[in-house]
Amino acid sequence: MQGNDHSIVRAVLAGDKEAYGALVRAHSAAAFRVAFRITGNEADAEEIVQEAFLRAYQRLEKFEQRSAFGTWVYRIAVNCALSRMGRPEIEAEYRHGEETDAETKTVQLAAQDADPERVLLGREASAAQEMAMQRLTATEKCAFVLRHLEERSMGEIAEALGVAPNAAKQAVFRAVQKLRRELAPLRGNA
């Protein structure tokens, strides 16, 4: 796959624009998944995927053939998501969107679950987690998503965020500590 990706990259750089389509098809799902997990918003995630592939195309000459294209574009997507979350107006919009999404999601859960008490608990837990995640900084949330949900190594996280490995580690630590503190009352109830 990696070798194939590299030959596609060479073809694109040689003027075959259409060849880039194969790379987009192969790696857009992974880029969407991480973008959605970071932003929590479907529309934002889709925009991030397009932005990431556009940036990757524009910087294709700088792409080092020793790394995998998928990893490279994944990192670009993380960066796009991070910079999008860092923008105050987007952040406000994203938070507002998240609240709506959380509401929608709990409604969906309610329809699937017949036990009203469980529905209520699930709704409360989900909302609390959403709130706790929103209180993290953009870097903390990114680092946590990459470590906890995407199961990336500290080295990969550091590279994706453009920080030193120790800084990435500290961001994950801070995120975990904050989340546990925020969710402690819920655990007590449960």
């Binding site: 969407f32 998944r33 959605f36 997990r37 929590g40 479907e42 999404d101 999601k105 837990a125 989900s126 987690q129 959403e130 998503v145 906890h148 949900l149 975990v176 989340l179 546990r180 969710l183 402690a184 655990r187």
Partner: peptide, 11 residues
């Protein structure tokens, strides 16, 4: 406590 933190379903 950490296991309980799960990703919301990715569409």
């Amino acid at each position: 406590s950490l296991d309980a933190i799960k990703s919301e379903d990715v569409p």
